[in-house]
Simulated assay, not measured.
Amino acid sequence: MSIIALIIIGAAAGLIATRLMRIETDLFATIGIGILGALVGGVVLRVLLTITGWMAGFVGAVLGAMVLIWLWKTYGPRR
């Protein structure tokens, strides 16, 4: 997957994940969450990606971003 595609998919996944988890982040944090979520989800759902195509990768990216948001909210800096 090219870097441009990773950024675009990561931005979309981060946007969806932050909205589903009901947190407000700036653009760079949203993209970062999405990209890291795409990496985490991509590793976890690699088999599904092989079987069903790019849609499994997108679902994995959203789920991975949601896991990262949950970890951030649970163990991140307290306000």
Rank of each mutant, 00 (worst) to 15 (best):
I4Y: 04
L15S: 06
M66Q: 01
T74C: 04
A5P: 05
M66R: 03
A56D: 10
A38M: 11
F58N: 02
F58W: 03
G14T: 07
A17P: 13
G76Q: 07
I8K: 01
M55Q: 15
T18V: 09
V62Q: 06
I51E: 15
V40I: 14
M66D: 03
L15G: 07
M21C: 03
S2E: 09
L20E: 09
L49C: 13
P77E: 14
M21H: 02
G37Y: 08
A56Q: 10
V62F: 00
G57C: 11
R19D: 14
I69F: 06
I3T: 05
R22C: 10
W54H: 08
I3K: 02
T50E: 15
A61D: 06
G34W: 06
M21G: 01
I69T: 04
T25V: 14
A65G: 00
A13C: 09
S2F: 08
F28G: 04
V40L: 13
V40G: 12
A17F: 12
R79A: 13
L6G: 03
M1Q: 08
A17W: 11
T30M: 13
P77Y: 14
T50H: 15
I4T: 04
S2W: 04
A11H: 07
T30V: 15
L20D: 07
L63I: 11
I23W: 02
A5V: 09
G53I: 03
E24T: 15
M1D: 10
R22Q: 13
I9Q: 06
V40A: 13
G53Y: 02
I33Q: 06
I69G: 00
L49E: 14
L45F: 14
S2Q: 08
L39K: 12
R78M: 06
I9H: 00
T30L: 13
T52C: 15
L39V: 14
V40T: 13
L36E: 10
L49H: 13
I23H: 02
L20Q: 10
I7V: 10
L71K: 02
L15H: 07
G41Q: 03
G64D: 12
R22K: 13
G32F: 00
I31R: 00
L45M: 11
S2P: 07
I35A: 00
E24N: 14
T25G: 13
G37D: 05
G32E: 00
M66E: 04
G64Y: 12
I3G: 01
I31W: 00
L63W: 11
G10F: 00
A11S: 07
I69S: 03
G14P: 08
L63C: 11
K73Y: 08
P77M: 15
L20Y: 09
M1T: 07
E24L: 15
V44Y: 12
W70H: 01
L48T: 09
D26G: 07
R78E: 06
G60C: 09
L27H: 05
A11E: 05
T50W: 15
L48F: 12
A65M: 01
V44Q: 12
G57W: 11
A38T: 11
L63E: 09
